[in-house]
């Protein structure tokens, strides 16, 4: 097929240039498309933060707890019966179930194997082998802010 067109030199060169141009557009397209998509900010505008806002301070009643997501890990924020705020990793140290606050016992409880932790995160009863990791809590304006301890 190439030989047949070879007779008409300039015509063939035109076809070649046109073809080359089209391919070039394709190549540039496959470079520019990812760049354009990259420039559009993603839905989640920020990287996993070293701190998270755990809702309004006023909304957390005394002697109650709330589970919030810290990145992908759950954290439990508690307002103790004496009104102080504290936060712990909500992952039980026994078999990684998510713990909860028990207002009747006034401490943290894991439903899976009845593990108990006091309000300092210490494992006080049941199978948990270690205390819960503690997070720092501050109140900024209305919001409760949890910060990972480093």
């Amino acid at each position: 097929m190439g030989d047949r067109v070879a007779d008409t030199g300039p015509a063939r060169r035109d076809v070649l240039n046109w073809l080359l141009g089209s391919w070039l557009v394709g190549v540039l397209g496959s470079i520019l498309y990812p760049i354009a998509r990259y420039l559009v900010p993603p839905e989640l505008p920020e990287a996993a933060p070293p701190s998270v806002v755990a809702g309004k301070a006023t909304a957390l009643a005394t002697n109650s707890g709330r589970i919030v997501a810290f990145g992908t890990a759950p954290v439990i924020v508690i307002r103790t019966p004496s009104g102080e705020l504290c936060a712990f990793s909500a992952t039980c140290t026994h078999l990684t179930c998510t713990v909860q606050y028990r207002p009747d016992l006034e401490h943290i409880w894991c439903a899976c194997h009845n593990g108990h932790y006091d309000l300092n995160g210490r494992n006080i009863a049941g199978p948990p082998p270690r205390p819960l990791d503690r997070f720092d809590v501050t109140v900024q304006g209305e919001d409760i802010v949890i910060v990972r301890r480093t």
Partner: peptide, 15 residues
């Protein structure tokens, strides 16, 4: 696309 471009480019270079 890149291979297509390269083939055409090679052809062009030979011409």
């Amino acid at each position: 696309v890149i291979i297509g471009f390269l083939i055409t480019l090679g052809w062009k270079i030979r011409r």
